[in-house]
């Protein structure tokens, strides 16, 4: 393979995984915006999206896209139910308490998937089968292109949702100033429910579209969540467009680190660069510094 082909290959691999990280990061950001908490179950919803889609494909022989759609709906429901079950009942919610409870939720979600769907790795073919596209000496899995297209579509829809719809505006208002939003007639507690739904949906979409490339099993969620959180921090926690930038950057860093340095050390290299960027720009690439009043 010539060097231009290698670069192109790595570029697409990076954008593909980066898109997934970006979707996971959106989930982190939406919940962070509404609760100020870091949601540790985000990664488990990603895994669950892939696992439910795989189980549906196996059980009903339905087309992959339909199974993925079904999985996204199921996981969105699980996300909202989780909020009602473990976050809503908190007497005095603080960000730290929600963060800690989300760790418990992550453990429960992971083991519930293991108990119901088993421990075996699962997968299914891509939306266009397992075909490859050849481009200037690079061979790109068709699913990578699907991932990129779906991520772009999801980001555009998310943008429209937050800018144009009443619910989206209410969510933004509640995130900006809870008391003022409450005074304006927005039910702030129920915006948390919606944010869990949206976060679970973003996670499930990511999980459903990455599984044809990587397979998945019940223990895959933690790592994906961890990467998504890093992408969210890199882009600037709480910033939707930062998620996209952070996700893509992290994906590309990993791809090029494994291509040119060593695939064993790709995580170490990616995180080293991430730490350096964070120390240089603490609020992330697109974040704005918080002004704290006493």
């Amino acid at each position: 393979m010539d060097s231009a082909g290698t670069v192109l290959q790595l570029l697409f691999a990076g954008i593909g995984t980066g898109s997934i990280y970006a979707l996971v990061a959106v989930g982190f950001n939406v919940i962070f915006k509404s609760t100020d908490a870091i949601n540790f179950s985000q990664g488990e919803w990603v895994m669950m999206g892939g696992m439910v889609a795989a189980a549906t494909v196996t059980a009903t022989a339905s087309p992959v896209w339909l199974a993925c759609l079904f999985a996204v709906l199921v996981v969105t429901g699980v996300g909202m139910a989780s909020e009602r079950l473990v976050v809503f009942p908190i007497a005095k919610p603080t960000p730290l308490l929600i963060t800690l409870i989300s760790i418990g939720l992550a453990i429960c979600t992971k083991s519930a998937v293991m108990l119901v769907l088993g421990k075996n790795p699962a997968g299914y073919p891509g939306f266009a089968g397992d075909t490859a596209v050849h481009l200037a000496g690079a061979s790109i899995h068709s699913q990578t292109l699907s991932i990129i297209a779906i991520t772009i579509a999801f980001m555009v829809l998310a943008h429209l949702f937050f800018e144009k719809t009443l619910l989206g505006k209410a969510l933004r208002a509640a995130a900006a100033d809870r008391d003022a939003a409450e005074l304006a007639g927005i039910r702030v507690r129920s915006t948390v429910l919606w944010s869990f739904g949206i976060a679970a949906m973003a996670g499930a979409v990511a999980g459903a579209i990455i599984t044809p490339l990587t397979f998945t099993s019940y223990d895959h969620g933690t790592m994906l969540g961890f990467k998504g959180f890093s992408a969210a921090m890199l882009g600037g926690l709480g910033n939707l467009y930062g998620s996209l930038l952070g996700g893509l950057l992290l994906g590309l860093l990993e791809a090029f680190a494994s291509g040119y340095i060593s695939s064993h050390f790709k995580d170490a290299v990616a995180f080293l660069v991430l730490l350096v960027i964070l120390f240089w720009r603490p609020t992330g690439l697109m974040g704005t510094p918080a002004v704290e009043k006493v």
Partner: peptide
């Protein structure tokens, strides 16, 4: 057995709640 992790997570949520 396999229920171990689930029970652990559940009891953790209950204690925190």
């Amino acid at each position: 057995g396999d229920l171990e992790l689930f029970l652990f997570g559940l009891s953790m949520i209950l204690v925190m709640l």
